[in-house]
């Protein structure tokens, strides 16, 4: 049997470490031992296929039961590509976020900001043949957290992505351009490489913006690429 083609290892500067002293929750949760590197096998290069028949898409977070959520309506769109620029087709993309006031529809969130009965803040979409995805939501608000005195999270939307292989699994956050809180956020700043960090910031996009309706933002996401060139990759599925 031919060995499967593995995924490339990331440059450590482009990914956050586990131990980040400025981010308090890492203190007791980061392993002290180095992880054991294992060569990729079928286990790592294969991954779950999510059929929309079982995992129903939900691309409009801005209304609930026909009623509009409060806040600034936005459209977020982009492409999911691998490191070689190839589209990741049929990828399941889950998103979740706070409401316009900076409060999550979650029992653990006790921030003194109003809940919006017309906003749950979760969605699920799939990429098309070119790797494109798109959803409509409202711009989330910033909110305080207790990591350090006067700590506020920059405005963000959480993303969960599944590629073709389980080694491509990614959870990340999308930030908004010009947010002054980014400069103080230990989660955003945890990635050493500035260019890699800045790719977490969406771009305002007038082509995605719909007149008289909603502002548009573009957020492209890159999943790990294969170790070999596409030409040697015919056995992939």
């Amino acid at each position: 049997m031919t060995d499967p083609i593995g995924y490339r290892r990331p440059d450590p500067a482009t990914q956050p470490p586990y131990d980040v002293p400025a981010y308090g929750s890492t203190h007791h949760r980061h392993p002290k031992q180095a992880p054991v590197r294992v060569p990729h096998t079928l286990t790592e290069v294969s991954g779950p296929r999510f059929s929309p028949a079982w995992y129903a898409p939900h691309a409009d977070l801005s209304t609930l039961n026909g009623k509009a959520a409060l806040g600034e309506r936005i459209i977020v769109a982009g492409r999911v590509l691998d490191e070689d620029g190839r589209p990741v087709r049929g990828a399941m993309v889950e998103v979740w976020q706070a409401n316009a006031a900076g409060r999550y529809h979650h029992p653990g969130d006790q921030h003194d900001a109003p809940l919006d009965p017309n906003f749950l803040g979760r969605g699920r979409v799939f990429t098309d043949e070119e790797g494109n995805y798109r959803f409509t939501t409202i711009r989330p608000g910033a909110y305080p957290w207790r990591n350090h005195p006067n700590a506020w999270r920059p405005v963000h939307i959480h993303y969960s992505l599944f590629g073709a292989g389980f080694a491509q699994r990614l959870i990340t956050q999308m930030y908004f351009p010009g947010d002054p809180l980014l400069a103080y956020d230990p989660i955003f700043l945890s990635t050493a490489d500035e260019a890699a960090r800045n790719r977490l910031i969406a771009r305002f996009d007038l082509d995605i913006t719909e007149p008289e309706w909603a502002l548009g933002y573009r957020f492209d996401i890159v999943l790990r690429g294969r170790e070999a060139t596409p030409f040697e990759n015919d056995g992939a599925h």
């Binding site: 440059d11 959870i171 890159v222």
Partner: peptide
């Protein structure tokens, strides 16, 4: 282009 940086799922992933 290097893979997008991972970020924490945070405390409200239950959504």
């Amino acid at each position: 282009t290097a893979a997008t940086a991972s970020q924490t799922a945070g405390p409200y992933w239950h959504l």
